[in-house]
Simulated assay, not measured.
Amino acid sequence: MNRRTSREKALQAVFQVDVGKSDPENAYRHVLGKDSDDVFLKKLFFGTVEHLHELDQIITDHLENWSLDRLANIDRNLLRIAVYEMKYMEDVPYTVSINEAVEIAKRFGDEKSSRFINGVLAKVMETLGK
Rank of each mutant, 00 (worst) to 15 (best):
T127M: 11
V96K: 09
V92P: 09
K34S: 14
L52I: 07
N77I: 01
L55P: 05
R107L: 14
T127D: 14
L44G: 05
T95S: 14
K130Q: 13
T48H: 05
A27T: 06
D91A: 12
A122E: 15
L79F: 00
S22I: 09
R107N: 08
F46P: 03
S36Y: 14
W66T: 04
R3A: 07
M125I: 10
I59C: 03
A13G: 01
V31H: 00
V17I: 07
L63V: 03
R7Q: 07
H62Q: 09
L128K: 09
V39W: 12
L71R: 05
V31Q: 05
K87C: 09
L71E: 04
A72T: 05
I81E: 02
K106E: 13
K43M: 14
D110V: 12
V83F: 00
A101P: 09
R107C: 06
V120Y: 03
S22V: 12
A72K: 08
Y28D: 01
H62K: 11
L71W: 01
L41A: 00
S6I: 02
M89V: 11
N118A: 14
N2H: 04
Y94I: 06
K106W: 00
A122M: 15
S36C: 12
I58M: 10
E25M: 13
R70A: 05
Q57R: 12
L44Y: 02
K21A: 11
M1G: 10
F116H: 09
L41N: 00
L41F: 00
D61S: 09
V49R: 00
Y88E: 10
V17G: 01
E8D: 02
Q57G: 08
N118H: 15
L63D: 01
V19P: 07
A105S: 08
Y84A: 02
E103K: 11
L44E: 05
T48Y: 00
T48N: 02
V31D: 00
G119Q: 08
R7E: 04
V124R: 06
L44N: 07
W66K: 12
V83Q: 05
R29K: 15
M1S: 10
V39A: 15
L41E: 02
A122D: 14
L44D: 02
F108D: 01
I117A: 07
V17P: 08
S113T: 13
F116V: 10
D110R: 13
T60I: 03
L32Q: 14
A13L: 00
S113Y: 07
L32Y: 09
D69N: 12
I104F: 02
K43E: 15
N65G: 08
K42I: 06
E100K: 12
D75K: 00
G119H: 06
G47N: 02
D69H: 10
Y84V: 02
V124N: 07
S22K: 14
L63S: 04
R115M: 12
D35S: 13
E25Y: 13
E25D: 13
H53N: 12
R7D: 05
N26E: 11
D37C: 03
E126C: 13
N99R: 10
S114G: 04
N73A: 13
I104A: 06
E100Y: 10
S6T: 03
E90P: 08
L52E: 13
V83S: 05
D61Q: 06
D18V: 02
G109M: 00
Q12F: 07
V124H: 04
V124K: 10
V92C: 13
N26P: 05
L11Q: 03
V120C: 05
N2D: 11
V120W: 01
H30F: 13
N77C: 07
M125D: 15
R29S: 15
R80P: 05
